[in-house]
Design a protein around this nucleic acid. Structure first.
Lengths: 125, 125
DNA sequence: GTCGTTGCAAAGCCTTTGCAGGGAA
DNA sequence: TTCCCTGCAAAGGCTTTGCAACGAC
């Protein structure tokens, strides 16, 4: 049976609090503010478990590498802010799969990454 | 001054012949069929040089990791065939940046990856 | 008291770097 | 002959794994 260790709870809380895709480094950093002893190996192991359990899903970001996001929020795309380096999930989809590829290509799924400035950083300028 | 070694020529020829984004492993494999002694370090060093020279551009593929493609063919997207695992460049762009993100987000650029079956693999089924 | 989890350190990958020998010009 | 480039091996950086101790239940 699965056990609710302080480390595991901390990691899950960070995802709940931030509500955006997170990378290992960020999880480790924020996790250590909650459980000081938190080890990298523990983060990796818990992320793997949460992915297998279906709670998290890994996404491969073109710039930031592998990030983890919570599942169950339908098809969406990602926005990467070049100021704060955070990634946000954008609901909805503006891409027509049928018109996106030339004839002969059968498109089954797609991923879109947008890059720019997020609302919070845009206001500060 | 830059020298035309057999290794460097081989790598450039592979990109010309394949005319699609390639990864290190594939370049190394095909390169060794031309120059048997070809070493991984040489491939990495030449890719780095060709990127600095502006001949190649690295793209970070969500599944295949870093691939290299020839520059100078304008904005385009990528299609990954799940049968043959090859990536193709698709000319044109079907995404409206202004409508792709909610208000408040300023989109400056984007990347689109399509996944499915390429024409060649589609015919064989 | 069990046995799933953790921290630590070692081991694995992939990529980069140092170095001496080799080859293009 | 020069000195850029290559192959080899060692070194980095990130992720995974082995193991003994720990702690949730």
């Amino acid at each position: 049976m699965e056990r609710k260790t302080s480390q595991r709870v901390a990691i899950e809380n960070i995802f709940q609090r931030e509500n955006r895709p997170l990378g290992v480094e960020e999880i480790l950093k924020e996790g250590r503010e909650i459980v000081e002893s938190l080890n990298q190996a523990t983060v990796y192991r818990n992320l793997k478990l949460l992915v297998e359990k279906g709670t998290l899903k890994p996404i491969s970001h073109p710039v930031l590498g592998i990030l983890y996001e919570r599942t169950g929020r339908g098809h969406h795309h990602h926005f990467h802010c070049r100021i704060c380096d955070r990634v946000f999930e954008l609901p909805g989809c503006m891409l027509s799969e049928t018109s996106a590829a030339p004839e002969g290509f059968v498109t089954e799924k797609h991923e879109v990454f947008l890059f720019g400035i997020c609302p919070a950083c845009g206001q500060q300028q």
